[in-house]
Nucleic acid binder design. Sequence first.
RNA 1: GGGGCCGUAGCUCAAUUGGUUAGAGCAUCGGACUGUCGAUCCGAAGGUUGCGGGUUCGACCCCCGUCGGCCUCGCCA
Length: 605
Amino acid sequence: MLKRTQTCGQPRISDVGQTVILTGWVNSYRDHGNLVFIDLRDRTGLVQLVFDPEKYPQIHKTARSLRCEWVIGARGAVRPRGDGMENPRLVTGQIEVAVEELEIFNQSKTPPFEIDSDVNVGEELRLQYRYIDLRRPGMLNRLAVRHRVAKIARDYYDSNGFWEIETPMLGKSTPEGARDFLVPSRLYKGSFYALPQSPQLFKQILMVSNVDRYFQIVRCFRDEDPRADRQAEFTQIDVEMSFVQADDVMKINEALIVRVFKEVLGLEIPTPIRQMTYAQAIEEYGIDRPDLRFDMRLKTITDIAAASTFQVFVNTVKKGGIVKGLCVPGGAKYSRSDIEVGLTQFITELGAKGLAWFKVAPDEATGAVSLKSNIAKFFTPEQQKQLIERFGAKSDDLILMVADQSAIVNKVLAPLRVKLGKDMGLCDPSKFEFVWVIDFPLLEWNADENRFDSLHHPFTAPVPEDLHKLDTDPGNIRSQAYDLVVNGSEIGGGSVRIHNMETQAKIFDLLKITRQQAMDRFGFFLKALEYGAPPHGGIAFGLDRMVMILTGTDNIRDVIAFPKTQRGQCLLTEAPSGVDQAQLDELNLKVQKHLHQLEDKQEKQ
RNA sequence: GGGGCCGUAGCUCAAUUGGUUAGAGCAUCGGACUGUCGAUCCGAAGGUUGCGGGUUCGACCCCCGUCGGCCUCGCCA
């Protein structure tokens, strides 16, 4: 068997005269009847092989039979290409290898789609033939970046005294948070393990155990519907540290991100990464993960709206709602139908009732900027002036406003801002704008359940100055949580944890988790807190999201070697699948008809 | 669970208002060719229009159902 002496991407003009052995896949062949050219591919690149019928007629004959994706090895001399025959598109384009010995390792069926093509292939087919899809340089590059990030993280944490420790995949189910993936226990019939949603409690227990600094690149599972940036199965870089405060955790972990961007993209991220409070993020961007690549901040105009005679605004404010909007620079180019059909549809699908708008234009009489709109008549000249000032609006701008309860207004305006930022070209896609979002509320009111829910998780520590509000004003307690956001995407989040049992018990009370429930679900953990838990905190980065940002894709499946579809299927292996009756028997499990089928049956009876 | 887009040759797409034999590029196969590099030229083969019903003289096209892919709301402590 021919053993390679170099990879395909390696040979250079300086190697001329050397005899090399290369192995790889046939990327393309050009048969001239006389000379035959093969572009040979491995993961490092392409190199041109030449077959000469005069010198090696037998090998040349074999070469003519080669087809795309056949796997071959070739021995030959590196030689310079003639003048004008270099290929500047290949790093090896100045040379070629004149083949003297050829070995066919394997043939290949014609692939279901072309590897070397710009044509976008349907994702369904790509996932079915993932091994072929992954051969494409773009996909391999994303796998390479993913590997680089993991390697940098391991090296970085190791050199800072962190230990990588594995935590169980088979864990205990807790009803809080996302839906669990369950694994039936054979030895305890009728009992189930749950796959971890994150190693949260284990890593905190490791702090109690004096591990001091822990990290793990770990798979997590949440049985919820996927999205473009979300899979049921995903990977976290999980970190926990003892004897630290929030700033310590942020400082040491942002240094990893800086290193990753430096080593992968060659970019210098200025440090310290700026911080923004949750309150400011919501006020100015409508969301806790603001895209800071462009300005176009949201402005609240509830006061001006309430004073106007526009009943939609006035009534909304009366009902406790707010009016907020944004000013699109140069947005007057949007036609009335763009706004009233296109943009309005965009926001009503997200839950808003309507979109109000003004175009900013010079007044024909006075020349001063004024507002043009079907609702301008409801605003006095003074109020219009106030609006122009509030938004900092200039001629040819477009002001868009939404009135509703604040949660809906923000939910709608945040994606609208991002969409407009991209549509108007305000957003430089090559930029990376990082921000720590801090001072999250500890709790949010859950009206349906008549209780508070944790915004982060129930083990997040409150800000000490707000502790006195635990009994009086729990909704306004800030937490010591922090999210790292880049370009509108949350790539990490963490907190300082509660490390005493008393505070932890208080939080459970607010979450309406009874002492008994708490003991049942987290008893092992609460007990650990009573045996000398040090102050500690940590963070978890989403590795998939980080690689998405680094490689510029908005599809999480592009950064996972073997991802699942929107319905949780693996098209390569066809998981999930049924199992043998014997397997079910061993687990003491019985599969019944789907509830829908049972209901149908009952209806028919 | 809800909403939206999509499904035609191996791939990417086209097909007039519902009209006669469903086309093109690439890929594949055969042939030609003295340096190509997305080779070129000549030729051939390739179709259950996702699947099942319905409407119609006639369905890729309209209707109902179903399967699958993607996006999204809910969901994601």
